[in-house]
Amino acid sequence: MDLADGGHQQGKPRSEPTTPYLLVLPSAAYLVLFVFYPMVQAVLLSVTEPRTGTFTLEHLRRMVTDLHFWPALRYTVLITALAVPIQAALALAMALLINTRFPGHPYFLYVCAIPLAVSDLAAGLIWLSLFTERGYLNAILLRVGLLSSPFNFLSYESPGWLVGAIVATEVWRATAIVMVVLVAGLQLIPRDYAETAAVFGASAWRTLWHVTLPLLRSSLQTALIIRTVLAFQLFATVVTLSGRLVPVLAGETYFWYSLYRNPHVASAYATLVLLLSAAVTWVYLRTLRTPEEAA
């Protein structure tokens, strides 16, 4: 839009329409080569019989009948359903706090964003060192006398604690990305809206609910899409904390490729993750649609 308008002002409307295409060409080429092509190949691998090259549903059947499939699907959805709302709520609270511009808020922002720089594997290891029998958490609880002997948080006998540890790690690791998106979104909202609401005597809560949140909708949508899609790819933290006791879809993709050496079933898992991500994105786009006039 902007580019076309700019072209019109310069009075060379005939030669300009190619410019936007040239500008998006590098990223389009990148997407086709490194995203679209591997995606198509993964889908093809998951339905191709390796010897004859013909169409088959055998790999999908093997995936669905595998011991770990249903638990993996269940746990992926469960962890996403627990972690994403907590992350969104926490991130919103942190973003609103930062937006009050309290003294020292830049430092608060930097400290909160530190986990962004930590890889998910490293995050898993950090939290593992907290939760093991000889970990920091047990050491502290023993020291202050809350426990008389170490408690095993990571035991196959207590899957609740295992899932709790995974969700805690995810919240710690990835809340910051949601927060950064929301802080950016909040800064785009002109102050006049809140001031006008104050003039009409709206409470802080009503201002948040009726003014800020509706205007934040598109940022919230972006943040939720990013987080949920990434949650479906959750892998390293889960494997570090729970081995394969809490299987997840992305983990099964990896195990089928690297342990079982079966790229076909691995691709079937990858395709499933792709479909789930696409479905969730579509739902977010539908339910959190920004009204035309606000765009």
Binding site: T132, L154, S155, E157, T240, L241, G243, L245
Partner: peptide
């Protein structure tokens, strides 16, 4: 058997930790 065995991959680690 230690209830965290399901995540052990290299046994020298829990041996050295005393788990």
């Amino acid at each position: 058997t230690h209830p965290s065995s399901f995540r052990y991959e290299f046994m020298h680690e829990p041996l050295l930790l005393g788990e």
